[in-house]
Amino acid sequence: MGPRANELAPASSATSSFTMLRRLPIWLVILVLVGLFVLYSMLTGDYLSTLQFLVIGVRLTVVSAVLSYALALAVGLIIALGRVSRNLLAYNLATLYVEIMRGVPLLVILLYAQFVVVPGLSNWLDLNLHTRLLWQRNSAIAGVIGLALGYAAYLAEVYRAGIESIERGQMEAARSLGMTYGQAMRHVILPQALRRVLPALGNDFIAIMKDTSLLTIISVSELTYYARQEASRTFQYFRTYNAAAFLYLTLTLLLSLGVRYIERRTSGGRR
């Protein structure tokens, strides 16, 4: 706790202004200034039309990121519980899943989802034509499934790290109070574990937001898809990808601010 230690020390006026400076998020100030400058130069020239075109893709980028992250959070938790479980079957299944999904590139998982899993599933389930079209026509669904299943493996490992970081005594104490394993997990271990891994989870949310750009390969019309379309018809690569990078940066910075806020909220009770 660097800044806090400074606060406790008898502060001369020089140190207190120094402390002020230290607590100010200078990186954010620089970023905002640069951002405003960039925005100014962007909104004056041809950038406006490029941005207006790319913004259409932001919706699907956000939607697929949020959906796949939510799915990954749920699937990841189940797998993490398998990973820490004493049940041989659950442990091995979960470990197998993590090792496979972590070892295959996300891009390959997405290609699987689009060209193998989704067509295969709808054949196997023998869906009627209407559902089949709905689900097969929308490559975003395959994309979300692929992203979520890939990220579930990473998130499972994050969860596991959190669960294993909780002292063994906690579980023993909970069990000796008469809680079942499940109750102890739910009421004692997981709340503490989640709080500890919150920064890592947030980090993965930002990562999944960026990785939605991979969906362009299965022609989901998200931000990168529009950027490539714009670039291939105007040949203005510098301008187009600047605009795309700007939009991505805006999304991820907003996210990281949100993650910080949630972290501060949840860590309140602990201090």
């Binding site: 060209f115 067509p119 089949r132 097969q136 299965i218 022609s219």
Partner: peptide
């Protein structure tokens, strides 16, 4: 990206 992927999707009814 390439026409081959489009054909794969056509075959899959996508």
């Amino acid at each position: 990206d390439d026409i081959a992927a489009a054909f794969a999707d056509l075959k899959n009814n996508a």
